[in-house]
Amino acid sequence: MNCDTFLACMHPYVDGELGVSDTVAADTHAAECPRCRSVTARERAFRQLLRSQPRETAPPELRRRIVTRIRRSSRAAALRPWLALPAAAAVAALLAVTLLPLTERPARGVVAELVDKHIAFAQLERPAEFVSADRRAVGAWFLERAGLSVSVPDYSPAGIRLVGARIADVRGRRAAYILYEKGRTLLSVFVAPASGEGDLVGARVTYRGQVYVTRVQKGYRTVAWTEGGVVFGLVSMLDDEALLECADRLRDERARQTRL
Protein backbone atom coordinates (compact mmCIF):
# COMPACT_ATOMS: atom_id res chain seq x y z
CA MET A 1 0.00 0.00 0.00
CA ASN A 2 1.32 3.45 -0.92
CA CYS A 3 0.19 6.89 0.27
CA ASP A 4 -2.43 7.26 -2.50
CA THR A 5 -4.07 3.90 -1.88
CA PHE A 6 -3.88 4.48 1.85
CA LEU A 7 -5.59 7.88 1.65
CA ALA A 8 -8.21 6.42 -0.71
CA CYS A 9 -9.30 3.98 1.98
CA MET A 10 -8.51 6.12 5.00
CA HIS A 11 -12.14 6.82 5.94
CA PRO A 12 -13.28 3.19 5.97
CA TYR A 13 -10.01 2.40 7.75
CA VAL A 14 -10.76 4.89 10.51
CA ASP A 15 -14.33 3.62 10.65
CA GLY A 16 -13.20 0.02 11.04
CA GLU A 17 -14.99 -0.84 7.81
CA LEU A 18 -12.04 -2.36 5.95
CA GLY A 19 -11.63 -6.09 5.53
CA VAL A 20 -8.96 -7.90 7.53
CA SER A 21 -6.28 -7.97 4.83
CA ASP A 22 -6.82 -4.30 3.89
CA THR A 23 -6.74 -3.32 7.54
CA VAL A 24 -3.41 -5.11 8.00
CA ALA A 25 -2.02 -3.42 4.87
CA ALA A 26 -3.24 -0.01 6.10
CA ASP A 27 -1.79 -0.62 9.57
CA THR A 28 1.52 -1.50 8.00
CA HIS A 29 1.58 1.63 5.85
CA ALA A 30 0.57 3.91 8.72
CA ALA A 31 3.34 2.44 10.85
CA GLU A 32 5.90 3.28 8.18
CA CYS A 33 4.57 6.62 6.93
CA PRO A 34 4.50 9.58 9.37
CA ARG A 35 2.42 11.74 7.01
CA CYS A 36 -0.38 9.22 6.60
CA ARG A 37 -0.19 8.46 10.30
CA SER A 38 -0.77 12.10 11.19
CA VAL A 39 -3.62 12.45 8.68
CA THR A 40 -5.22 9.41 10.23
CA ALA A 41 -4.75 10.73 13.75
CA ARG A 42 -6.45 13.99 12.83
CA GLU A 43 -9.30 12.13 11.15
CA ARG A 44 -9.78 10.06 14.28
CA ALA A 45 -9.80 13.20 16.42
CA PHE A 46 -12.39 14.75 14.16
CA ARG A 47 -14.57 11.69 14.37
CA GLN A 48 -14.19 11.76 18.11
CA LEU A 49 -15.41 15.33 18.09
CA LEU A 50 -18.48 14.31 16.07
CA ARG A 51 -19.16 11.33 18.28
CA SER A 52 -18.87 13.40 21.42
CA GLN A 53 -21.73 15.65 20.34
CA PRO A 54 -24.30 16.00 23.09
CA ARG A 55 -26.88 13.26 22.69
CA GLU A 56 -30.27 14.82 22.99
CA THR A 57 -33.22 12.78 24.07
CA ALA A 58 -36.73 12.90 22.68
CA PRO A 59 -39.07 15.18 24.64
CA PRO A 60 -41.12 13.09 27.11
CA GLU A 61 -44.26 14.70 25.73
CA LEU A 62 -43.45 13.37 22.25
CA ARG A 63 -42.88 9.89 23.60
CA ARG A 64 -46.14 9.96 25.51
CA ARG A 65 -48.05 11.15 22.44
CA ILE A 66 -46.61 8.39 20.25
CA VAL A 67 -47.31 5.64 22.78
CA THR A 68 -50.89 6.83 23.16
CA ARG A 69 -51.45 6.89 19.40
CA ILE A 70 -49.92 3.45 18.94
CA ARG A 71 -51.97 1.85 21.68
CA ARG A 72 -55.11 3.41 20.28
CA SER A 73 -54.40 2.33 16.70
CA SER A 74 -53.44 -1.09 18.02
CA ARG A 75 -56.90 -1.47 19.48
CA ALA A 76 -58.41 -0.38 16.15
CA ALA A 77 -56.22 -2.89 14.30
CA ALA A 78 -57.44 -5.65 16.58
CA LEU A 79 -60.89 -4.88 15.28
CA ARG A 80 -59.60 -4.97 11.73
CA PRO A 81 -57.23 -7.94 11.82
CA TRP A 82 -56.76 -7.84 8.07
CA LEU A 83 -54.50 -4.87 8.56
CA ALA A 84 -52.44 -6.72 11.09
CA LEU A 85 -51.51 -9.86 9.20
CA PRO A 86 -48.16 -11.08 10.49
CA ALA A 87 -45.43 -11.62 7.95
CA ALA A 88 -45.13 -15.16 9.21
CA ALA A 89 -48.41 -16.12 7.61
CA ALA A 90 -47.00 -17.49 4.40
CA VAL A 91 -50.10 -16.74 2.42
CA ALA A 92 -49.76 -15.78 -1.19
CA ALA A 93 -52.63 -14.19 -2.91
CA LEU A 94 -53.47 -14.34 -6.54
CA LEU A 95 -56.19 -11.86 -7.06
CA ALA A 96 -58.02 -12.13 -10.31
CA VAL A 97 -60.60 -9.58 -11.33
CA THR A 98 -62.65 -10.52 -14.33
CA LEU A 99 -64.84 -7.92 -15.91
CA LEU A 100 -67.47 -9.09 -18.34
CA PRO A 101 -70.32 -7.42 -20.19
CA LEU A 102 -73.86 -8.61 -19.63
CA THR A 103 -74.39 -11.82 -21.53
CA GLU A 104 -76.72 -14.81 -21.84
CA ARG A 105 -77.82 -16.84 -18.83
CA PRO A 106 -74.96 -19.11 -17.77
CA ALA A 107 -75.20 -22.87 -17.69
CA ARG A 108 -73.75 -22.82 -14.19
CA GLY A 109 -72.83 -20.23 -11.60
CA VAL A 110 -70.25 -17.76 -12.79
CA VAL A 111 -68.32 -18.02 -9.54
CA ALA A 112 -67.77 -21.73 -10.16
CA GLU A 113 -66.20 -20.94 -13.51
CA LEU A 114 -64.03 -18.24 -12.00
CA VAL A 115 -62.77 -20.63 -9.36
CA ASP A 116 -61.77 -23.00 -12.16
CA LYS A 117 -60.02 -20.13 -13.95
CA HIS A 118 -58.20 -19.21 -10.82
CA ILE A 119 -56.95 -22.74 -10.33
CA ALA A 120 -55.91 -22.97 -13.98
CA PHE A 121 -54.07 -19.63 -14.00
CA ALA A 122 -52.32 -20.43 -10.77
CA GLN A 123 -50.75 -23.44 -12.46
CA LEU A 124 -49.38 -21.43 -15.36
CA GLU A 125 -45.72 -20.69 -15.37
CA ARG A 126 -46.60 -17.04 -15.81
CA PRO A 127 -50.05 -16.41 -14.34
CA ALA A 128 -49.78 -12.75 -15.36
CA GLU A 129 -49.66 -11.96 -19.06
CA PHE A 130 -48.68 -8.38 -18.26
CA VAL A 131 -46.32 -8.23 -15.32
CA SER A 132 -46.35 -4.98 -13.36
CA ALA A 133 -46.67 -3.86 -9.76
CA ASP A 134 -47.85 -0.45 -10.93
CA ARG A 135 -51.61 -0.10 -10.54
CA ARG A 136 -51.83 2.69 -13.06
CA ALA A 137 -49.86 0.71 -15.64
CA VAL A 138 -52.14 -2.29 -15.16
CA GLY A 139 -55.24 -0.13 -15.59
CA ALA A 140 -53.80 1.46 -18.73
CA TRP A 141 -52.94 -1.97 -20.10
CA PHE A 142 -56.53 -3.19 -19.78
CA LEU A 143 -57.84 -0.08 -21.45
CA GLU A 144 -55.42 -0.41 -24.32
CA ARG A 145 -55.66 -4.18 -24.76
CA ALA A 146 -59.36 -4.75 -24.32
CA GLY A 147 -61.02 -1.38 -23.88
CA LEU A 148 -61.83 -2.35 -20.29
CA SER A 149 -61.90 0.30 -17.60
CA VAL A 150 -60.75 -1.59 -14.52
CA SER A 151 -60.20 -0.39 -10.97
CA VAL A 152 -56.97 -1.82 -9.60
CA PRO A 153 -57.13 -1.62 -5.81
CA ASP A 154 -54.10 -1.19 -3.58
CA TYR A 155 -53.69 -4.07 -1.14
CA SER A 156 -50.10 -3.35 -0.28
CA PRO A 157 -50.96 -2.24 3.30
CA ALA A 158 -51.98 -5.86 3.87
CA GLY A 159 -48.79 -7.13 2.29
CA ILE A 160 -50.55 -8.24 -0.88
CA ARG A 161 -48.44 -7.35 -3.87
CA LEU A 162 -49.76 -6.56 -7.32
CA VAL A 163 -48.22 -9.02 -9.78
CA GLY A 164 -49.83 -8.13 -13.06
CA ALA A 165 -52.77 -8.78 -15.30
CA ARG A 166 -54.21 -10.95 -18.00
CA ILE A 167 -57.08 -10.81 -20.45
CA ALA A 168 -59.11 -13.85 -19.55
CA ASP A 169 -61.66 -15.69 -21.61
CA VAL A 170 -64.75 -16.27 -19.52
CA ARG A 171 -67.80 -17.66 -21.31
CA GLY A 172 -66.40 -16.65 -24.62
CA ARG A 173 -66.10 -13.00 -23.58
CA ARG A 174 -63.04 -10.97 -22.86
CA ALA A 175 -62.49 -10.31 -19.20
CA ALA A 176 -59.98 -8.44 -17.10
CA TYR A 177 -57.95 -10.46 -14.65
CA ILE A 178 -55.71 -8.85 -12.03
CA LEU A 179 -53.18 -10.86 -10.07
CA TYR A 180 -51.80 -10.19 -6.63
CA GLU A 181 -49.69 -12.33 -4.41
CA LYS A 182 -48.81 -12.61 -0.75
CA GLY A 183 -45.90 -14.90 -0.10
CA ARG A 184 -46.33 -18.11 -2.04
CA THR A 185 -49.98 -19.04 -1.56
CA LEU A 186 -52.47 -17.92 -4.16
CA LEU A 187 -55.77 -16.14 -3.83
CA SER A 188 -58.29 -15.24 -6.52
CA VAL A 189 -60.90 -12.53 -6.75
CA PHE A 190 -63.35 -12.40 -9.64
CA VAL A 191 -65.76 -9.96 -11.25
CA ALA A 192 -68.19 -11.42 -13.77
CA PRO A 193 -71.31 -10.57 -15.80
CA ALA A 194 -74.52 -10.10 -13.90
CA SER A 195 -76.45 -12.39 -16.17
CA GLY A 196 -79.17 -13.16 -13.67
CA GLU A 197 -80.16 -13.47 -10.06
CA GLY A 198 -79.06 -17.11 -10.04
CA ASP A 199 -75.43 -16.09 -10.60
CA LEU A 200 -74.55 -15.71 -6.98
CA VAL A 201 -75.32 -18.66 -4.78
CA GLY A 202 -74.20 -18.81 -1.17
CA ALA A 203 -74.50 -17.18 2.20
CA ARG A 204 -75.40 -13.51 2.28
CA VAL A 205 -73.06 -11.49 4.47
CA THR A 206 -73.13 -7.80 5.34
CA TYR A 207 -69.73 -6.17 5.77
CA ARG A 208 -69.36 -2.46 6.42
CA GLY A 209 -72.87 -1.85 5.22
CA GLN A 210 -72.49 -3.73 1.92
CA VAL A 211 -74.04 -7.09 1.07
CA TYR A 212 -71.88 -9.93 -0.27
CA VAL A 213 -72.47 -13.56 -1.17
CA THR A 214 -69.91 -15.99 0.21
CA ARG A 215 -69.38 -19.69 -0.40
CA VAL A 216 -66.69 -22.36 -0.34
CA GLN A 217 -65.93 -24.26 -3.53
CA LYS A 218 -63.17 -26.80 -4.20
CA GLY A 219 -61.49 -25.60 -1.05
CA TYR A 220 -61.48 -21.94 -2.08
CA ARG A 221 -63.49 -19.26 -0.37
CA THR A 222 -65.32 -16.80 -2.58
CA VAL A 223 -66.84 -13.42 -1.93
CA ALA A 224 -68.95 -11.95 -4.72
CA TRP A 225 -71.34 -9.09 -5.43
CA THR A 226 -72.99 -7.46 -8.41
CA GLU A 227 -72.70 -3.83 -9.26
CA GLY A 228 -73.54 -1.91 -12.42
CA GLY A 229 -74.17 -4.97 -14.56
CA VAL A 230 -70.97 -6.64 -13.48
CA VAL A 231 -70.30 -9.42 -10.99
CA PHE A 232 -67.22 -9.02 -8.86
CA GLY A 233 -65.89 -12.21 -7.31
CA LEU A 234 -62.92 -12.83 -5.05
CA VAL A 235 -61.57 -16.36 -4.68
CA SER A 236 -58.84 -17.30 -2.26
CA MET A 237 -57.47 -19.44 0.51
CA LEU A 238 -57.62 -16.44 2.81
CA ASP A 239 -60.32 -16.26 5.43
CA ASP A 240 -63.60 -14.46 4.86
CA GLU A 241 -62.52 -11.40 6.80
CA ALA A 242 -59.51 -10.88 4.55
CA LEU A 243 -61.59 -11.39 1.42
CA LEU A 244 -64.28 -9.04 2.61
CA GLU A 245 -61.68 -6.42 3.39
CA CYS A 246 -60.29 -6.81 -0.15
CA ALA A 247 -63.80 -6.53 -1.54
CA ASP A 248 -64.45 -3.41 0.50
CA ARG A 249 -61.29 -1.80 -0.78
CA LEU A 250 -62.15 -2.63 -4.37
CA ARG A 251 -65.53 -0.96 -3.90
CA ASP A 252 -63.83 2.02 -2.30
CA GLU A 253 -61.47 2.28 -5.22
CA ARG A 254 -64.30 2.11 -7.76
CA ALA A 255 -66.31 4.70 -5.88
CA ARG A 256 -63.30 6.99 -5.81
CA GLN A 257 -62.72 6.60 -9.54
CA THR A 258 -66.38 7.25 -10.29
CA ARG A 259 -66.21 10.49 -8.33
CA LEU A 260 -63.22 11.71 -10.27
Binding site: R71, A77, A78, P81, A84, L85
Partner: peptide, 20 residues
Protein backbone atom coordinates in the same frame (compact mmCIF):
# COMPACT_ATOMS: atom_id res chain seq x y z
CA UNK B 1 -54.51 -20.32 8.32
CA UNK B 2 -54.07 -16.67 9.15
CA UNK B 3 -53.44 -15.58 12.68
CA UNK B 4 -52.46 -12.30 14.18
CA UNK B 5 -51.11 -11.10 17.42
CA UNK B 6 -53.65 -9.51 19.68
CA UNK B 7 -53.55 -5.74 19.48
CA UNK B 8 -52.25 -5.11 22.96
CA UNK B 9 -49.29 -7.47 22.46
CA UNK B 10 -48.45 -5.84 19.16
CA UNK B 11 -48.19 -2.38 20.65
CA UNK B 12 -46.22 -3.65 23.62
CA UNK B 13 -43.84 -5.50 21.32
CA UNK B 14 -43.45 -2.38 19.21
CA UNK B 15 -42.69 -0.32 22.29
CA UNK B 16 -40.03 -2.80 23.36
CA UNK B 17 -38.42 -3.39 19.98
CA UNK B 18 -38.82 -0.08 18.20
CA UNK B 19 -39.48 2.73 20.66
CA UNK B 20 -36.20 2.09 22.46
Amino acid sequence: MIGWRPGRDRSREFEEVALV
